[in-house]
Computed example of a mutant assay.
Amino acid sequence: MTEQNHWQLIPAQDFCCPSPPAVTRLRQGWLRLLRLLRLHAAEAEPEQEEADLPDYQAYDRRPAVAALDERLGSWRQEAQAGACFLLDPPYSGTAAIARDWADLHGWRTLTPPNTTSLERADVEQWWRGQRGSGPWLIDDLARYLLRTVEGMDFVCALLPRLLQGELGQGLVVCDSWMFAFVGRAWPLRLPRVYCFAPVGPGLLRQLGVRASDKVLCRLAARARGNPGLALALWTVERQAKQELPELPSEADDVTAFVLYTLLLHRGLGVALLQRVLPVVSPDLLNVQLLRLEQCGIVLREEERWRVSIHGYLVVRDFLTERDFWPDGF
């Protein structure tokens, strides 16, 4: 660990996405034009050796676990029944940090309901099937609902029980896009909602990025304060053979619904994706997924489709321009 730990857990309402200066916004537009023309801008910043580039999935999470423990330590020790919520922007690594923290303190990780239990909204049966006892972790709330009429019933039955402490003490990790959706679909505000503070030059250096303050501030703004995304972007910038993907020219409203659904659920298999988007024919859905995969916008992992880390920013812009409800990160 470094002498100063730049990881910090803050109330979610205090999160402020880093704003790029005007020159950075102009540069981003210029780089986008160059990418469309398949040209490259000359970089004035010395390149970091490829062997030394930090991995967005393999950085040292112990300082982040320490920051989480510092913020939630009193609440954990008091063993208060009820839940805290931890927001997890895509590819931020927050869920992995929470799992490390839970393992450190001997908390069990709950198993998500299967599709049948989800649609029956039988929280009692699901709870009886959990192994062990004591404090618990839900490491991905997106696995507890589907954006269908029946698929929302389980989480609507679960959340009141979590807030009232009926299931004991627990930490709930919620994807930031899912949190924005639940905030609109559910009538109550969730208490004790936290997130990690946006990444800045100090944390980027702690994660292994070597550059000037100017470059690091620009990187933090481009990544919207997301540490995992910042590391992935940094690697792309340092590797001349790799570029960020662009959406296909055929991208349309159906593309937008497919991408929003994948972000909302943090990835889905084709069968569940079809259930959430019944108006999209199976053939058209397959064409959309394969086209997006060819462009590098989505990827397939163990039969689940999800938005790729390198395609995330362009997808976020695409959905925002089409008035989809984005996360706050």
Rank of each mutant, 00 (worst) to 15 (best):
R147Y: 09
E50G: 07
P89K: 04
G168V: 02
D140I: 08
E150T: 00
Q164W: 04
A142M: 12
R71Y: 02
G106R: 04
E166F: 08
R131A: 15
D175G: 15
V123M: 04
P54L: 08
V123G: 00
W136D: 02
S133D: 13
D140A: 14
E70P: 02
F196I: 10
P89W: 01
P160F: 00
D55R: 15
W107A: 09
L68K: 11
L167H: 06
Y91A: 08
L188E: 13
W101I: 03
S92Y: 02
R189Q: 14
S133W: 07
A58K: 11
S133Q: 14
V173H: 08
A95K: 10
L190C: 06
T94R: 09
M178I: 15
L158P: 01
P113Q: 03
R71Q: 10
R184T: 14
P54Q: 08
Q125Y: 11
L159Y: 04
D52N: 13
Y194R: 07
Q164A: 15
L163R: 08
L110T: 04
L53D: 05
S176Q: 14
A157G: 14
I97A: 07
T111H: 12
R76V: 08
R71L: 13
T111K: 12
T115W: 10
R131F: 07
Q80S: 13
D69G: 04
A185E: 11
A95P: 06
Y91G: 08
E70G: 11
Q77H: 14
Y194K: 00
A67E: 02
D139H: 08
V193S: 02
L162P: 04
R128W: 12
G183S: 12
Y56D: 11
N114W: 07
G170I: 03
G165W: 02
G170H: 13
Q130P: 01
G134K: 11
D55F: 09
D122F: 02
V172Y: 01
A66M: 10
P54K: 06
S117R: 13
F179Y: 15
F154W: 05
S92N: 00
G168E: 01
Y91L: 08
Y194V: 13
R61Q: 14
P63F: 11
Q130G: 09
G170R: 14
P89G: 01
E166R: 15
A96L: 01
P160A: 03
A51R: 12
Y144C: 04
R189E: 14
G129Y: 10
E124S: 09
W107P: 05
V182C: 03
R143Y: 11
S74W: 12
L68T: 06
D153C: 13
A58W: 10
A67L: 07
A66N: 13
L104F: 10
W107Y: 07
W136L: 09
W75L: 12
G106P: 03
L159W: 04
M152W: 12
W186A: 01
R192G: 14
D55K: 14
C195N: 13
R71E: 07
V123N: 02
A180C: 05
R108Y: 01
S117T: 00
D140R: 15
S176R: 13
